[in-house]
Design a protein around this nucleic acid. Structure first.
Lengths: 202, 202
DNA sequence: CGCTCAATTGACCGGTCGGCCAATCGAGGC
DNA sequence: GCCTCGATTGGCCGACCGGTCAATTGAGCG
Protein backbone atom coordinates (compact mmCIF):
# COMPACT_ATOMS: atom_id res chain seq x y z
CA UNK A 1 0.00 0.00 0.00
CA UNK A 2 2.37 2.66 1.31
CA UNK A 3 -0.39 5.27 1.29
CA UNK A 4 1.26 8.40 2.73
CA UNK A 5 -1.99 10.34 3.17
CA UNK A 6 -2.81 10.06 6.87
CA UNK A 7 0.74 9.11 7.78
CA UNK A 8 1.36 10.44 11.26
CA UNK A 9 5.08 9.70 11.05
CA UNK A 10 7.28 10.50 8.12
CA UNK A 11 10.94 10.94 9.03
CA UNK A 12 11.94 11.94 5.50
CA UNK A 13 9.37 14.69 5.41
CA UNK A 14 10.38 15.79 8.89
CA UNK A 15 14.01 16.01 7.84
CA UNK A 16 13.18 18.15 4.84
CA UNK A 17 10.79 20.31 6.88
CA UNK A 18 13.63 21.01 9.30
CA UNK A 19 16.13 21.55 6.49
CA UNK A 20 13.80 23.94 4.67
CA UNK A 21 13.06 26.01 7.75
CA UNK A 22 16.71 26.01 8.76
CA UNK A 23 17.86 27.11 5.33
CA UNK A 24 15.38 29.94 5.35
CA UNK A 25 16.50 31.17 8.77
CA UNK A 26 20.22 30.69 8.19
CA UNK A 27 20.01 32.53 4.89
CA UNK A 28 18.23 35.38 6.58
CA UNK A 29 20.20 35.71 9.81
CA UNK A 30 23.41 33.70 9.58
CA UNK A 31 24.47 30.80 11.76
CA UNK A 32 24.93 32.26 15.19
CA UNK A 33 21.89 34.52 15.15
CA UNK A 34 19.52 31.60 14.63
CA UNK A 35 18.01 30.14 17.80
CA UNK A 36 17.06 26.48 17.80
CA UNK A 37 13.82 27.31 19.59
CA UNK A 38 12.76 29.68 16.82
CA UNK A 39 13.80 27.14 14.22
CA UNK A 40 11.73 24.44 15.92
CA UNK A 41 8.73 26.75 15.99
CA UNK A 42 9.22 27.65 12.34
CA UNK A 43 9.53 24.03 11.23
CA UNK A 44 6.67 22.99 13.54
CA UNK A 45 8.71 20.33 15.28
CA UNK A 46 10.21 20.00 18.73
CA UNK A 47 13.76 20.98 19.50
CA UNK A 48 14.55 17.41 20.48
CA UNK A 49 13.54 16.24 17.06
CA UNK A 50 16.11 18.49 15.46
CA UNK A 51 18.81 16.97 17.62
CA UNK A 52 17.50 13.50 16.89
CA UNK A 53 17.81 13.98 13.14
CA UNK A 54 20.88 16.19 12.89
CA UNK A 55 22.82 15.86 16.12
CA UNK A 56 23.72 19.48 16.76
CA UNK A 57 23.24 22.99 15.47
CA UNK A 58 26.62 22.91 13.72
CA UNK A 59 25.83 19.62 11.99
CA UNK A 60 22.48 20.99 10.86
CA UNK A 61 24.26 24.05 9.44
CA UNK A 62 26.59 21.75 7.53
CA UNK A 63 23.65 19.74 6.22
CA UNK A 64 21.90 22.91 5.04
CA UNK A 65 25.02 24.15 3.28
CA UNK A 66 25.71 20.80 1.68
CA UNK A 67 22.19 20.47 0.30
CA UNK A 68 22.11 24.01 -1.05
CA UNK A 69 25.57 23.83 -2.60
CA UNK A 70 24.87 20.47 -4.16
CA UNK A 71 21.73 21.92 -5.71
CA UNK A 72 23.77 24.88 -6.94
CA UNK A 73 26.61 22.89 -8.41
CA UNK A 74 24.54 20.23 -10.13
CA UNK A 75 22.46 22.97 -11.73
CA UNK A 76 25.52 24.89 -12.84
CA UNK A 77 27.26 21.79 -14.10
CA UNK A 78 24.23 20.81 -16.15
CA UNK A 79 24.10 24.29 -17.60
CA UNK A 80 27.78 24.16 -18.42
CA UNK A 81 27.58 20.75 -20.05
CA UNK A 82 24.59 21.89 -22.06
CA UNK A 83 26.64 24.65 -23.60
CA UNK A 84 27.67 23.97 -27.15
CA UNK A 85 30.82 24.67 -29.09
CA UNK A 86 32.89 27.69 -28.16
CA UNK A 87 31.74 30.63 -30.21
CA UNK A 88 31.56 34.35 -29.75
CA UNK A 89 28.18 34.29 -28.06
CA UNK A 90 28.76 31.52 -25.54
CA UNK A 91 30.63 33.68 -23.05
CA UNK A 92 28.02 36.40 -23.21
CA UNK A 93 25.23 33.87 -22.77
CA UNK A 94 27.02 32.26 -19.84
CA UNK A 95 27.36 35.56 -18.03
CA UNK A 96 23.71 36.34 -18.61
CA UNK A 97 22.64 32.90 -17.43
CA UNK A 98 24.75 33.15 -14.28
CA UNK A 99 23.49 36.65 -13.52
CA UNK A 100 19.87 35.62 -13.90
CA UNK A 101 20.41 32.46 -11.89
CA UNK A 102 21.66 34.51 -8.95
CA UNK A 103 18.82 36.98 -9.38
CA UNK A 104 16.32 34.12 -9.12
CA UNK A 105 18.11 32.39 -6.23
CA UNK A 106 18.91 35.08 -3.69
CA UNK A 107 19.19 32.50 -0.94
CA UNK A 108 22.19 30.90 -2.57
CA UNK A 109 23.94 34.24 -2.77
CA UNK A 110 23.48 34.92 0.92
CA UNK A 111 24.49 31.39 1.87
CA UNK A 112 27.71 31.88 -0.08
CA UNK A 113 28.28 35.19 1.63
CA UNK A 114 27.86 33.79 5.15
CA UNK A 115 30.24 30.96 4.45
CA UNK A 116 32.77 33.38 2.95
CA UNK A 117 32.75 35.39 6.15
CA UNK A 118 33.11 32.25 8.22
CA UNK A 119 36.24 31.49 6.21
CA UNK A 120 34.67 28.21 5.16
CA UNK A 121 36.22 26.97 1.93
CA UNK A 122 34.77 23.48 2.19
CA UNK A 123 32.91 23.35 -1.10
CA UNK A 124 36.23 23.42 -2.90
CA UNK A 125 36.24 20.21 -4.94
CA UNK A 126 32.94 20.81 -6.67
CA UNK A 127 33.84 24.40 -7.32
CA UNK A 128 37.15 23.49 -8.86
CA UNK A 129 35.43 21.35 -11.48
CA UNK A 130 33.14 24.20 -12.50
CA UNK A 131 35.87 26.79 -12.66
CA UNK A 132 38.25 24.39 -14.33
CA UNK A 133 35.74 23.59 -17.05
CA UNK A 134 34.96 27.27 -17.58
CA UNK A 135 38.62 28.21 -17.71
CA UNK A 136 39.28 25.38 -20.16
CA UNK A 137 36.59 26.76 -22.42
CA UNK A 138 38.18 30.21 -22.27
CA UNK A 139 41.54 28.70 -23.12
CA UNK A 140 40.11 27.05 -26.22
CA UNK A 141 38.44 30.26 -27.25
CA UNK A 142 41.76 32.04 -26.86
CA UNK A 143 43.49 29.51 -29.11
CA UNK A 144 40.81 29.98 -31.75
CA UNK A 145 41.38 33.70 -31.67
CA UNK A 146 37.97 34.46 -30.16
CA UNK A 147 39.41 36.01 -27.02
CA UNK A 148 42.57 37.95 -26.30
CA UNK A 149 45.43 35.70 -25.28
CA UNK A 150 47.27 37.86 -22.71
CA UNK A 151 44.95 37.13 -19.78
CA UNK A 152 44.65 34.22 -17.36
CA UNK A 153 41.55 32.15 -18.30
CA UNK A 154 40.70 31.51 -14.65
CA UNK A 155 40.70 35.25 -14.02
CA UNK A 156 38.16 35.74 -16.80
CA UNK A 157 35.80 33.30 -15.10
CA UNK A 158 36.52 34.76 -11.65
CA UNK A 159 35.88 38.28 -12.85
CA UNK A 160 32.35 37.74 -14.06
CA UNK A 161 31.43 35.36 -11.26
CA UNK A 162 32.57 37.86 -8.65
CA UNK A 163 30.85 40.77 -10.33
CA UNK A 164 27.52 38.96 -10.53
CA UNK A 165 27.86 37.71 -6.97
CA UNK A 166 28.71 41.08 -5.49
CA UNK A 167 25.93 42.80 -7.40
CA UNK A 168 23.33 40.77 -5.55
CA UNK A 169 25.26 40.28 -2.31
CA UNK A 170 25.67 43.99 -1.66
CA UNK A 171 22.54 45.15 -3.38
CA UNK A 172 21.19 46.86 -0.28
CA UNK A 173 24.37 48.89 -0.19
CA UNK A 174 24.65 50.28 -3.70
CA UNK A 175 21.12 50.17 -5.02
CA UNK A 176 20.58 53.75 -3.88
CA UNK A 177 23.76 55.13 -5.36
CA UNK A 178 22.99 58.15 -7.53
CA UNK A 179 22.57 57.17 -11.15
CA UNK A 180 22.50 53.44 -10.49
CA UNK A 181 20.31 51.55 -12.92
CA UNK A 182 18.25 48.39 -12.72
CA UNK A 183 19.53 44.82 -12.70
CA UNK A 184 19.23 44.57 -16.46
CA UNK A 185 20.75 47.97 -17.11
CA UNK A 186 23.79 47.11 -15.02
CA UNK A 187 24.11 43.70 -16.68
CA UNK A 188 24.01 45.38 -20.09
CA UNK A 189 26.76 47.82 -19.20
CA UNK A 190 28.84 45.12 -17.57
CA UNK A 191 28.54 42.93 -20.65
CA UNK A 192 29.48 45.85 -22.88
CA UNK A 193 32.66 46.49 -20.90
CA UNK A 194 33.44 42.84 -20.28
CA UNK A 195 32.97 41.60 -23.84
CA UNK A 196 34.95 44.53 -25.28
CA UNK A 197 37.64 43.94 -22.67
CA UNK A 198 38.17 40.26 -23.46
CA UNK A 199 37.89 40.67 -27.23
CA UNK A 200 41.11 40.16 -29.20
CA UNK A 201 43.14 43.36 -29.46
CA UNK A 202 43.76 44.72 -32.97
CA UNK B 1 49.86 69.78 34.65
CA UNK B 2 47.58 67.28 32.98
CA UNK B 3 50.28 64.62 33.08
CA UNK B 4 48.53 61.52 31.74
CA UNK B 5 51.29 59.13 32.78
CA UNK B 6 50.00 57.49 35.94
CA UNK B 7 46.40 58.43 35.20
CA UNK B 8 44.25 55.70 36.73
CA UNK B 9 41.10 56.98 35.01
CA UNK B 10 40.88 57.96 31.40
CA UNK B 11 37.40 57.66 29.96
CA UNK B 12 38.53 58.59 26.45
CA UNK B 13 41.16 55.90 26.43
CA UNK B 14 38.68 53.43 27.87
CA UNK B 15 36.19 54.22 25.13
CA UNK B 16 38.75 53.68 22.40
CA UNK B 17 40.06 50.51 24.09
CA UNK B 18 36.53 49.14 24.01
CA UNK B 19 35.94 50.33 20.45
CA UNK B 20 39.20 48.81 19.24
CA UNK B 21 38.57 45.45 20.84
CA UNK B 22 34.95 45.46 19.67
CA UNK B 23 35.92 46.29 16.10
CA UNK B 24 38.43 43.48 16.07
CA UNK B 25 35.91 40.94 17.36
CA UNK B 26 32.98 42.14 15.24
CA UNK B 27 35.14 42.09 12.12
CA UNK B 28 36.19 38.56 12.91
CA UNK B 29 32.92 37.00 14.03
CA UNK B 30 30.04 39.29 13.15
CA UNK B 31 27.59 40.92 15.52
CA UNK B 32 25.63 38.08 17.05
CA UNK B 33 28.57 35.72 17.51
CA UNK B 34 30.41 38.19 19.74
CA UNK B 35 29.85 37.72 23.48
CA UNK B 36 30.09 40.77 25.71
CA UNK B 37 32.02 38.77 28.28
CA UNK B 38 34.70 37.89 25.73
CA UNK B 39 34.78 41.48 24.54
CA UNK B 40 35.24 42.74 28.10
CA UNK B 41 38.10 40.29 28.61
CA UNK B 42 39.69 41.31 25.32
CA UNK B 43 39.45 45.03 26.08
CA UNK B 44 40.54 44.46 29.69
CA UNK B 45 37.51 46.21 31.14
CA UNK B 46 34.44 45.05 32.99
CA UNK B 47 31.19 44.29 31.22
CA UNK B 48 29.47 47.02 33.19
CA UNK B 49 31.90 49.56 31.83
CA UNK B 50 30.88 48.70 28.28
CA UNK B 51 27.25 49.35 29.14
CA UNK B 52 28.19 52.53 30.94
CA UNK B 53 29.94 53.96 27.88
CA UNK B 54 27.82 52.56 25.05
CA UNK B 55 24.47 51.56 26.52
CA UNK B 56 23.93 48.24 24.80
CA UNK B 57 25.54 45.75 22.48
CA UNK B 58 23.57 47.12 19.52
CA UNK B 59 24.63 50.69 20.24
CA UNK B 60 28.25 49.59 20.53
CA UNK B 61 27.94 47.85 17.15
CA UNK B 62 26.61 51.07 15.66
CA UNK B 63 29.46 53.05 17.20
CA UNK B 64 32.02 50.63 15.79
CA UNK B 65 30.50 50.81 12.31
CA UNK B 66 30.24 54.59 12.40
CA UNK B 67 33.86 55.04 13.40
CA UNK B 68 35.17 52.58 10.82
CA UNK B 69 33.05 53.96 7.99
CA UNK B 70 33.96 57.52 8.82
CA UNK B 71 37.63 56.56 8.69
CA UNK B 72 37.01 54.84 5.36
CA UNK B 73 35.09 57.66 3.75
CA UNK B 74 37.35 60.48 4.86
CA UNK B 75 40.33 58.56 3.52
CA UNK B 76 38.63 57.83 0.24
CA UNK B 77 37.39 61.36 -0.13
CA UNK B 78 40.87 62.74 0.46
CA UNK B 79 42.25 60.35 -2.12
CA UNK B 80 39.57 61.37 -4.59
CA UNK B 81 40.11 65.08 -4.04
CA UNK B 82 43.84 64.62 -4.43
CA UNK B 83 43.32 63.21 -7.91
CA UNK B 84 44.24 65.61 -10.65
CA UNK B 85 42.71 66.38 -14.02
CA UNK B 86 40.92 63.61 -15.86
CA UNK B 87 43.39 61.84 -18.08
CA UNK B 88 43.83 58.35 -19.41
CA UNK B 89 45.80 57.15 -16.41
CA UNK B 90 43.58 58.46 -13.62
CA UNK B 91 41.02 55.67 -13.85
CA UNK B 92 43.69 53.00 -13.87
CA UNK B 93 45.43 54.61 -10.90
CA UNK B 94 42.16 54.90 -9.00
CA UNK B 95 41.39 51.23 -9.43
CA UNK B 96 44.88 50.30 -8.30
CA UNK B 97 44.65 52.61 -5.30
CA UNK B 98 41.28 51.21 -4.28
CA UNK B 99 42.43 47.62 -4.71
CA UNK B 100 45.51 48.19 -2.59
CA UNK B 101 43.56 50.09 0.02
CA UNK B 102 41.27 47.09 0.50
CA UNK B 103 44.24 44.74 0.53
CA UNK B 104 45.78 46.76 3.35
CA UNK B 105 42.51 47.17 5.27
CA UNK B 106 40.90 43.74 5.40
CA UNK B 107 38.86 44.73 8.42
CA UNK B 108 36.95 47.32 6.44
CA UNK B 109 36.05 44.76 3.81
CA UNK B 110 34.62 42.37 6.36
CA UNK B 111 32.77 45.13 8.18
CA UNK B 112 31.14 46.09 4.89
CA UNK B 113 30.23 42.49 4.25
CA UNK B 114 28.58 41.97 7.63
CA UNK B 115 26.51 45.11 7.23
CA UNK B 116 25.53 44.08 3.71
CA UNK B 117 24.16 40.80 5.04
CA UNK B 118 22.32 42.62 7.79
CA UNK B 119 20.64 44.65 5.10
CA UNK B 120 22.02 47.80 6.71
CA UNK B 121 22.24 50.59 4.16
CA UNK B 122 22.82 53.32 6.72
CA UNK B 123 26.10 54.68 5.39
CA UNK B 124 24.29 55.92 2.33
CA UNK B 125 24.82 59.66 2.41
CA UNK B 126 28.59 59.53 2.62
CA UNK B 127 28.71 56.86 -0.03
CA UNK B 128 26.61 58.86 -2.41
CA UNK B 129 29.13 61.69 -2.36
CA UNK B 130 32.00 59.38 -3.22
CA UNK B 131 30.17 57.58 -5.99
CA UNK B 132 28.71 60.79 -7.30
CA UNK B 133 32.14 62.40 -7.53
CA UNK B 134 33.60 59.35 -9.23
CA UNK B 135 30.75 59.11 -11.70
CA UNK B 136 31.06 62.81 -12.46
CA UNK B 137 34.71 62.28 -13.29
CA UNK B 138 33.80 59.43 -15.63
CA UNK B 139 31.21 61.62 -17.31
CA UNK B 140 33.81 64.31 -17.97
CA UNK B 141 36.21 61.75 -19.34
CA UNK B 142 33.47 60.50 -21.64
CA UNK B 143 32.85 63.99 -22.98
CA UNK B 144 36.54 64.44 -23.66
CA UNK B 145 36.56 61.22 -25.63
CA UNK B 146 38.73 59.38 -23.12
CA UNK B 147 36.09 56.76 -22.37
CA UNK B 148 33.34 55.16 -24.44
CA UNK B 149 30.08 57.09 -24.16
CA UNK B 150 27.49 54.28 -24.30
CA UNK B 151 27.81 53.21 -20.65
CA UNK B 152 26.36 54.56 -17.42
CA UNK B 153 29.16 56.36 -15.49
CA UNK B 154 27.85 55.09 -12.15
CA UNK B 155 28.06 51.53 -13.46
CA UNK B 156 31.72 52.05 -14.31
CA UNK B 157 32.45 53.03 -10.72
CA UNK B 158 30.25 50.26 -9.34
CA UNK B 159 31.92 47.65 -11.49
CA UNK B 160 35.44 48.19 -10.24
CA UNK B 161 34.41 48.84 -6.66
CA UNK B 162 32.43 45.59 -6.56
CA UNK B 163 35.17 43.59 -8.21
CA UNK B 164 37.83 44.79 -5.77
CA UNK B 165 35.48 44.26 -2.83
CA UNK B 166 34.49 40.75 -3.80
CA UNK B 167 38.06 39.75 -4.52
CA UNK B 168 38.98 40.28 -0.88
CA UNK B 169 35.60 39.45 0.63
CA UNK B 170 35.44 35.97 -0.88
CA UNK B 171 39.14 35.31 -0.99
CA UNK B 172 38.88 32.19 1.12
CA UNK B 173 36.46 30.83 -1.43
CA UNK B 174 38.26 31.31 -4.72
CA UNK B 175 41.91 31.50 -3.74
CA UNK B 176 42.27 27.78 -4.34
CA UNK B 177 40.56 27.73 -7.70
CA UNK B 178 42.77 26.00 -10.25
CA UNK B 179 44.91 28.49 -12.14
CA UNK B 180 44.10 31.43 -9.88
CA UNK B 181 46.94 33.89 -9.57
CA UNK B 182 48.11 36.26 -6.87
CA UNK B 183 46.50 39.55 -5.86
CA UNK B 184 48.70 41.48 -8.26
CA UNK B 185 48.24 39.02 -11.12
CA UNK B 186 44.48 39.25 -10.82
CA UNK B 187 44.59 43.03 -10.57
CA UNK B 188 46.70 43.16 -13.73
CA UNK B 189 44.27 41.00 -15.69
CA UNK B 190 41.30 42.88 -14.37
CA UNK B 191 42.85 46.19 -15.36
CA UNK B 192 43.65 44.82 -18.79
CA UNK B 193 40.04 43.79 -19.38
CA UNK B 194 38.52 46.80 -17.64
CA UNK B 195 40.61 49.47 -19.35
CA UNK B 196 40.14 47.88 -22.76
CA UNK B 197 36.42 47.57 -22.06
CA UNK B 198 35.88 51.22 -21.19
CA UNK B 199 38.14 52.58 -23.91
CA UNK B 200 36.40 54.41 -26.77
CA UNK B 201 35.27 52.02 -29.50
CA UNK B 202 36.75 52.56 -32.97
C1' DC C 1 -1.43 -10.02 17.67
C1' DG C 2 2.67 -8.62 19.87
C1' DC C 3 7.49 -7.41 19.32
C1' DT C 4 10.83 -4.09 18.00
C1' DC C 5 12.86 0.01 17.12
C1' DA C 6 12.87 4.49 15.22
C1' DA C 7 10.17 8.76 15.54
C1' DT C 8 8.50 11.97 18.61
C1' DT C 9 7.45 14.28 22.94
C1' DG C 10 7.92 17.28 27.03
C1' DA C 11 10.34 17.99 31.06
C1' DC C 12 14.54 19.32 32.43
C1' DC C 13 19.67 20.71 32.81
C1' DG C 14 23.92 23.52 33.48
C1' DG C 15 25.84 27.38 31.50
C1' DT C 16 25.97 31.81 30.09
C1' DC C 17 23.90 35.50 27.76
C1' DG C 18 22.91 40.75 27.87
C1' DG C 19 21.85 43.87 31.17
C1' DC C 20 21.19 46.17 35.89
C1' DC C 21 22.39 48.08 40.38
C1' DA C 22 24.39 49.53 44.64
C1' DA C 23 28.85 50.57 46.29
C1' DT C 24 33.47 52.33 45.70
C1' DC C 25 36.89 55.10 43.76
C1' DG C 26 39.28 59.25 41.99
C1' DA C 27 39.98 63.63 39.59
C1' DG C 28 38.66 68.47 39.46
C1' DG C 29 36.12 72.57 41.20
C1' DC C 30 35.13 75.44 45.04
C1' DG D 1 40.13 69.81 52.37
C1' DC D 2 35.97 68.44 51.25
C1' DC D 3 32.32 67.55 47.88
C1' DT D 4 30.53 66.28 43.76
C1' DC D 5 29.92 63.58 39.90
C1' DG D 6 31.37 60.57 36.48
C1' DA D 7 34.32 56.35 36.00
C1' DT D 8 34.72 51.87 37.56
C1' DT D 9 33.79 47.62 40.07
C1' DG D 10 31.76 43.10 41.44
C1' DG D 11 27.80 40.84 42.28
C1' DC D 12 23.63 39.62 40.69
C1' DC D 13 19.42 38.77 37.78
C1' DG D 14 15.91 36.62 34.77
C1' DA D 15 15.85 34.73 30.35
C1' DC D 16 17.02 31.62 27.35
C1' DC D 17 20.58 29.14 25.01
C1' DG D 18 21.98 24.38 23.03
C1' DG D 19 21.61 19.95 24.51
C1' DT D 20 20.06 15.50 27.23
C1' DC D 21 16.99 12.03 28.83
C1' DA D 22 13.39 8.88 29.96
C1' DA D 23 8.97 7.90 28.47
C1' DT D 24 5.44 7.41 24.85
C1' DT D 25 3.79 6.57 20.31
C1' DG D 26 3.25 4.34 15.92
C1' DA D 27 4.72 1.78 11.72
C1' DG D 28 6.47 -2.48 9.91
C1' DC D 29 7.16 -7.23 10.33
C1' DG D 30 6.82 -12.15 11.40
Amino acid sequence: MMSQKTQTRDPELTRTRILDAAESLFVEQGFSAVKLSALARSADVTKSLIHHHFGSKEQLWEAVKNRAFERYYTGQMAMLEGAGEPDAMLLRNSVEAYFHFLRDNPGVVRLFAWTHLEGDSHCGELDNQLVGAGAEWVRQAQMRGLLRKDINPTHVIALFVMTCTQWFEAKCHHQHWPGMGSDEAFLDDFLTIFMAGVAPQN
